[in-house]
Design a protein around this nucleic acid. Sequence first.
DNA 1: CCCCTTATGCTTGTCTTGAGCATATGATTT
DNA 2: AAATCATATGCTCAAGACAAGCATAAGGGG
Lengths: 297, 297
Amino acid sequence: MNQPHEPVRAELVAVAVGVLDGAPRVLTTSASQLQLPAGPLREDHRSMQAGLRAWVEEKTGLRLGYVEQLYTFADRDRAGSERTISVSYLGLTWMERGDLDQWVSWYDLFPWEDQRDDGVLRRALEPHLRAWAQAEDAERRVVRCRVTFGLDGIDWHPELALQRYEVLYEAGLVPESPDWRKALPPQIVGPWMVHDHRRIVATAMGRLRAKIQYRPVVFELMPPEFTLGQLQACVEAIAGQHVHKQNFRRIVEQQHLVEETGGTTSETGGRPARLFRFRREILDERAAGGTKLPRTR
Amino acid sequence: MNQPHEPVRAELVAVAVGVLDGAPRVLTTSASQLQLPAGPLREDHRSMQAGLRAWVEEKTGLRLGYVEQLYTFADRDRAGSERTISVSYLGLTWMERGDLDQWVSWYDLFPWEDQRDDGVLRRALEPHLRAWAQAEDAERRVVRCRVTFGLDGIDWHPELALQRYEVLYEAGLVPESPDWRKALPPQIVGPWMVHDHRRIVATAMGRLRAKIQYRPVVFELMPPEFTLGQLQACVEAIAGQHVHKQNFRRIVEQQHLVEETGGTTSETGGRPARLFRFRREILDERAAGGTKLPRTR
DNA sequence: CCCCTTATGCTTGTCTTGAGCATATGATTT
DNA sequence: AAATCATATGCTCAAGACAAGCATAAGGGG
């Protein structure tokens, strides 16, 4: 029953996300090419998570806080070589100013994902999508584009990031597609990344956008004290959508996710805002819900 | 930067689930010990999913339909040996009568998870949980038990199956705990399974229970034609909870998840019920929602 | 002092959801 | 044949969640 296992290589890959200046950003290892922090699972790693943290710290100096497993890919690299299994993780961290060069905005990677100013980007993409949809197997393709990209008045679902990427990949519009001759310029479809790292980032984006709605994970991206305005800005950055301010406040407050610190700040301009902190106890107290998105259209 | 990878062993593990007679069941490989179908990733497998399907078919004869990745574990087996990476998958299938011996009810594995008759089982467990909570670090432990097991009037959340298992594991109440001296009899805490297979099943249960609420996956467990009553029974089996019949029907119908076949059946006893089939198109048409659980208390 | 900006409080109408009443229609029992 | 049981199906109602918007508050900069 158990023939000997063929050995494989195990790789740990991190999508470390922080939010700064209205854009979520992904940590890359500084190199000529865009690539995620990664490294092999080693004998001395106590667990995969521990190994992942170690690699990220070694390669970028960042100590991750929140970490969760994303997905595991198996790639047959070059013919003949061992197979590599990549276990990817999503990590969240609070960003302060500085060292922006290692941090790539995920809207630079996926320009169409920011619906806060869909204008140019989506307009530039939509015709190509329609062309692809018409080319072959039209019925299915049209429906698929409509649903994933929210065309023709259908709702845009932020959490479908991976599915959108996959459409573009199949359509040959992104540079890493197998048939990349029709690939569009990076301002529209974003830059190339090593291996399948862009797919992994898209996976992370989808997961985070979904999770933010039913688990209080935004707070892992926030400083210890923050205003509700800043919290909202962070959620909007992640979701790539605007939310209704007053309703957002209502939800956050009535769920008792935060408590006032007593302080205020006027850094935000306008009327000074009260400062809040995350009530971390809530993680035990309840199967606490997340931050629904009261949409604004 | 790239020291040579230390080789590891990659194992594929399947949690194949079907529903029969009001209980979800998990496929095991017939042996003296309870264990899940599993096998190493092989060179000739085109992908991990393909490999998984192949193993399940080889070991049990079952052809899986729907498959999704669950979680990846890394275990250091025995000291000195290579590390094993287990990539686990959830598979759903439609069960007909027969061959029940290979299929273990997940309420035999986790008796406390069936809240449709929580009576005896939970009563038998609760005192031990409270004892554990009091023993040490009481404040945290009490809250944790309350939340995960829904004690003291807090809502029971079906999808917290894994968290509940982990509490029992830490409390030493299940036979596979490192300190198993306090373990309770199998009628209360279920039987032992090979390796960490029971943890994997608990993961699958949590995932499926969560997913059923926001994606139409129940239908993967149903025959081509079914009555709404049967569909409801299937959902209740998965969730381990009763749902409100009329509201359940309302949700399913208004989401256009199903269409009438025109036929009826009186197999269910009582007034004959109309037959429906799943509108599979909906999987493309919308980011279709699942089957929320209109609770009944 | 006026205006700009963001913060914060509150109202209103709509939609969703939980809960239950009432009736329909077959099989089974009396 | 009538009563009874069991499930199916249709419909109503009230409470709560949610989208949207109005109005006021309180800083800073001209």
